[in-house]
């Protein structure tokens, strides 16, 4: 067992364990904390995949912004952290579907079926690949350049900024205390 595999397993355990706790914990506040752990595991996986920039962005944006935002929302809304029953009545069905879905994905994206003896289930050569080309040393710089390169991703990049802006304005409008929904509806009518 190489060190890399060990690190991978630890990070995966963090990610999946955190995720599992997020969806099962009764206390919403705790769920938020577990979410951070899970997101941190994902960031670690990014670093392991030699995408350190994404790892850092993951920490900053996801943990630093989104998870914190969720935590703040939880704290600002009283009486929503502890519901008597955290699951809907359909939870057994949901769980079954999730498991079936997982099994289906696993059969496709891993060589497990081939291991089990199914002939030619998926093209396992591509899945078991454990060597990859070298990541260029200036990958982060290239990434930055490509994002603002008109021939590459400038247009989507700008559109994304507009999207963020619109989301921000929309969020402010939605929670603006000046107008309740009924008033807005009356205004429109």
């Amino acid at each position: 067992m190489t060190v890399e595999l060990l690190v991978f397993l630890i990070l995966s355990a963090l990610t999946l364990g955190g995720g599992m706790l997020v969806v099962t914990t009764r206390n919403l506040f705790h769920a938020g904390l577990y979410l951070m752990i899970s997101l941190f595991g994902v960031a670690g996986l990014f670093v392991l995949l030699t995408a350190p920039f994404l790892g850092v962005v993951q920490v900053i944006v996801y943990i630093g912004a989104i998870a914190i935002l969720i935590m703040l929302a939880i704290m600002l809304s009283p009486n929503i952290t502890n519901l008597p029953n955290p699951f809907t009545a359909q939870w057994p069905v949901g769980a079954a579907l999730a498991v079936i879905f997982f099994v289906m994905l696993i059969t496709v994206v891993t060589p497990v079926m081939n291991e089990l003896g199914a002939d030619d289930w998926v093209n396992s050569d591509q899945l078991t690949v454990d060597t990859a080309g070298d990541v260029p040393a200036d990958g982060i710089a290239t990434l930055g350049e490509e994002l603002v390169d008109p021939h590459k991703y400038m247009l989507p990049f700008e559109v994304a900024s507009v999207l963020l802006m619109a989301a921000m304005i929309g969020a402010v409008l939605l929670v603006h205390p000046g107008k309740q929904a009924e008033d807005v509806i009356e205004d429109v009518a």
Binding site: T88, Q90, V93, G94, L97, I100, F101, M104
Partner: peptide
């Protein structure tokens, strides 16, 4: 909405199969 999502998931599974 979650019940609708359940149906969507069912459909997803069917398509995947």
């Amino acid at each position: 909405v979650q019940q609708y999502l359940l149906f969507v998931t069912l459909a997803l599974l069917a398509i995947g199969t």
